[in-house]
Write a protein that binds this DNA or RNA. Structure first.
Length: 480
DNA sequence: TGAAATGTTGGGGCG
DNA sequence: ACGCCCCAACATTTC
């Protein structure tokens, strides 16, 4: 057997616990070559944020360095869209005499189509093509209900997921491969600009790159903050969360490593034991759930609601309201704080994601897809499955979504989770000197607004809530 | 991973 | 001492 393997990197920018890379290194005795394909127009049409692309390039540079130390060159190719990817990979394989292609599967619709085209093109060119499951801990499609269907409710999914791991064991994270004897060729340099993306929007101070950094964040989190995670995770001012999502999204961190270490921090248990690790593991399972839902019901990511009757909701156009929401000028302090955090950092605390999403879909009655797109365009951790799942949850259109009548009162939420207004004051500085009581009261600012240059609320929450309930009730009644 | 409306209870002010 | 009212405080129901 004489093999030279081409490893195609995508959202798996690491060498640790990387199934395709590990298997390629095991099988190849004539060297390994890595390749990454930049697709600016495709990324643009998928609404990738500037800050996400900037973060990706820095991680790509780190990956290239680590691969070089393993004597594996990382090649960089650039094509506008996915259609050109098979031809580019075939050319690379030919140029470097590779006889096998290794990659980890991606599950989104366009990505799957691309991967199928690559597989058939390279198989046709005589290569041995090997694909691996990596994105989730339990592969999509591995879990079914007793009737053989797909899970659409989180709790039974979680039960099956946990049982699956307890039955099959959790694969130990694979160590990074050992350095090879020689470098097949020199690595390519990482581009400094990508057409259509403003890389000056990056925040390397908040999101340092590289898998060592990511693993350090994980172990720091699990050796301390995870203890108070259950209590503090809903407090946006507390920084009680792991902030690992950007690293998981680009595969800088392995989800199996996250679970393995969280389990170690909980005496080897998954769903009983310490509250902190168990709650955090639950969030990992939500991530798995939405990946599985996307594969089982691809229409959810094609602009369709999971619950068909909700397709008939009479969303308001309200362009001015939507623009105010995007800009963080809705006049509701906690909502504006969240949206401004997103714009400035590429990240939003999960409690705030739920609050601002509910406010858009229920109070403003604006189509959740517009909010979903705004999030994707600004999130450094933008992930199709999680983002879509979260939005359809908040809009009551999704799998296991919040019931339509369960509507957040943003002021009550603020009182509960930002009781001293600390988070609001950080992100809405014009309200810095306003009394906390006034921040948490829809009528609290009436006289000061003009002087503070802070807008009046776009709507009255009580009336908006009634309107949303009426509208949902109407379309769901018609469904019977 | 709600909040509001409605119902119930019990303490205390007050004539 | 008693009835009445008010209204927290809590429970239940409804959306």
């Amino acid at each position: 057997m004489h093999t030279r393997a081409l490893v195609w990197f995508r959202a798996d920018l690491r060498v640790d616990d990387h199934p395709a890379l590990a298997e390629a290194c095991r099988a190849a005795d004539r060297g390994v070559v890595g390749v990454f394909v930049i697709c600016p127009r495709q990324w643009r049409s998928h609404d990738w944020a500037d800050i996400k692309v900037e973060f990706l390039l820095r991680n790509l540079a780190c990956l290239s360095e680590r691969l070089k130390r393993l004597r594996i060159p990382l090649l960089i190719r650039s094509v506008p869209t996915f259609e050109r990817v098979p031809a580019v990979l075939r050319d690379v394989a030919r140029q470097f005499n590779c006889d096998a292609l290794y990659f980890n599967r991606e599950y989104e619709v366009n990505e799957r189509r691309r991967d199928e085209a690559v597989t058939s093109a390279l198989t046709g060119a005589g290569l041995d093509v090997r694909a691996f499951d990596d994105r989730t801990i339990v592969a999509p499609g591995a879990l079914h209900t007793r009737q053989g269907g797909d899970y659409t409710v989180f709790t039974p999914f979680k039960r099956a997921w946990t049982a699956h791991i307890e039955a099959h064991g959790l694969d130990a994270p694979r160590p990074a491969p050992r350095p090879r004897a020689r470098l097949v060729c020199a690595p390519d340099s990482i581009p400094e600009q990508i057409a259509g993306f403003d890389l000056s929007r990056g925040r390397p101070d908040l999101w340092p790159a590289g898998e060592r950094v990511a693993q350090r964040r994980l172990s720091d989190f699990l050796s301390g903050p995870v203890t108070t995670y259950r209590k503090l995770r809903d407090r946006p001012a507390a920084e009680g969360t792991s902030r690992l999502s950007p690293y998981l999204t680009l595969g800088v961190l392995s989800p199996r490593r996250c679970l393995a270490e969280a389990r170690d921090a909980n005496d080897g248990r998954l769903d009983t034991g310490r509250a902190g690790p168990v709650t955090w593991i639950n969030e990992l399972i939500w991530r798995e759930f939405y990946q599985h839902v996307l594969v089982a019901f691809p229409r959810v990511s094609m602009g369709r609601a999971f619950q068909p009757p909700t397709e008939r909701l009479p969303w308001r156009t309200a362009d001015a309201d939507f623009a105010a929401w995007c800009a963080g000028r809705t006049g509701v302090p906690i909502v504006d704080a969240g949206l401004r955090q997103l714009a400035a950092t590429g990240w939003m605390h999960n409690r705030l994601r739920m609050i601002v999403a509910t406010y858009l879909a229920k109070d403003l009655l604006i189509d959740w897809r517009r909010g979903e797109q705004h999030f994707m365009r600004h999130l450094v951790d933008g992930d199709l499955a999680s983002n879509n799942g979260g939005w359809q949850w908040a809009a009551s259109t999704g799998t296991d979504a919040v019931p339509y009548f369960r509507i957040f009162n943003p002021y009550t939420q603020a009182r509960k989770f930002d009781p001293d207004g600390e988070f609001i004051r950080e992100w809405v500085p014009e309200l810095r000197d306003v009394a906390t009581r006034a921040l948490h009261d829809p009528a609290g600012l009436t006289e000061q607004r003009a002087a503070l240059d802070y807008p009046a609320p776009l709507c009255d929450h009580t009336a908006a809530r009634q309107r949303a309930i009426e509208v949902f009730k109407a379309v769901l009644r018609r469904a019977d």
